[in-house]
């Protein structure tokens, strides 16, 4: 109150030059500038960090090809990985990464969608009270714990059931399945909840059963969201290093079957990065693996965007 009076007085004492009076900065405008400045600063820092990471990984990753003159085709399609001897065929790791990613996604999706349908359509109350916390808990468990359980439980189990050492793609798939399940489930739940209630009502009012309504109306209109969820799950599986490293066996050879030891891009990175010297071919080769990982995560992101846009566009025409 006092301040207002003070300002009024101040304005009164000012000249009759309206242009100067209406253009001069007050505390309010200065606060605006401050706020804008702080936001732009934060955005700038984030952009700088992301851009320098991209630049760092890319420049280091391409050194294999520019400085060590390894051909790109040999890197991408060669199957012999022995960087100490100058052989850097990364195909075994690429295949390993894709194999565990797709296998985990394929196994996890039906479970995730089933759980999500239960949580949204069949028993929303129990879903919210019981399953929601469980899923949130699963997301929060550190990956080393998953890896340890994999090592202590899944690997011996696989050794017992299918034979071999127990280390291999199938164990990694199993561990990743549990790890991506909560990601896919919670995002699928969100996309099912976003389906307008009137779709469900319209379907029921036409005499369609609950199952028909869920399978033909609700799942159908949630499809873009579910695909996005699966891709996020795949991105997580593709990028997971520690847990996979603990159960896959870490042999940089072409996987012959699901139970032979193999390795992924990430597991090879974490295994190898401590043993190499900066600037040498073995080190550069690992950076190239990191570059592939980076490009794949950019690809997953782009895919999510494309799907979101498709989902939107389809019904606006």
């Amino acid at each position: 109150m006092e301040q207002t009076n003070f300002q009024l007085k101040k304005q009164k004492s000012q000249s009759n030059d309206w242009s100067a009076r209406l253009h001069h900065a007050t505390r309010a405008t200065r606060e605006d500038w401050m706020g804008k400045g702080i936001s732009y600063l934060c955005i700038g820092v984030i952009i700088l960090v992301v851009a320098s990471m991209l630049w760092f990984i890319t420049s280091k990753g391409v050194a294999t090809f520019t400085q060590n003159h390894v051909s790109l085709t040999k890197f991408l399609f060669g199957t012999n990985w022995a960087p100490d001897q100058g052989h850097i065929g990364a195909l075994p790791m690429i295949v390993g990464s894709f194999a565990v990613t797709f296998a985990a996604a394929i196994v996890a999706t039906p479970f995730a969608v089933g759980t999500a349908i239960f949580m949204t359509e069949i028993s929303p109350n129990k879903g919210r009270k019981l399953l929601q916390p469980v899923i949130e808990l699963l997301v929060g468990i550190p990956s080393v714990v998953y890896g340890f359980i994999g090592l202590a439980v899944v690997v011996p189990f696989m050794r017992h059931v299918v034979g071999g050492s127990g280390f291999g793609i199938i164990s990694a798939t199993f561990v990743l399945f549990v790890m991506v399940l909560p990601t896919i489930t919670s995002m699928t739940v969100d996309s099912l909840r976003a389906v307008p209630r009137h779709f469900k009502e319209a379907s029921l009012a036409l005499g369609a059963t609950r199952w028909q309504t869920v399978s033909r109306v609700i799942l159908r209109s949630a499809t873009p969201g579910i695909l996005t969820a699966v891709i996020f799950g795949m991105a997580r599986a593709f990028g997971e290093a520690l847990a996979v490293q603990m159960v896959i066996g870490n042999a940089a050879i072409m996987p012959k079957n699901l139970i032979s030891p193999a390795s992924t891009l990430t597991s090879q990175l974490t295994t190898g990065i401590g043993d190499t010297i900066d600037g040498t071919l073995p080190n550069n080769a690992l950076w190239s693996l990191a570059l592939i990982l980076l490009l794949m995560s950019l690809f997953f992101n782009a895919l999510v965007r494309v799907i979101a846009k498709r989902g939107q566009l389809k019904h606006e025409r």
Partner: peptide
């Protein structure tokens, strides 16, 4: 219903 609610 009140609001037109065709399926997508």
């Amino acid at each position: 219903f009140q609001r037109p609610n065709p399926f997508a």
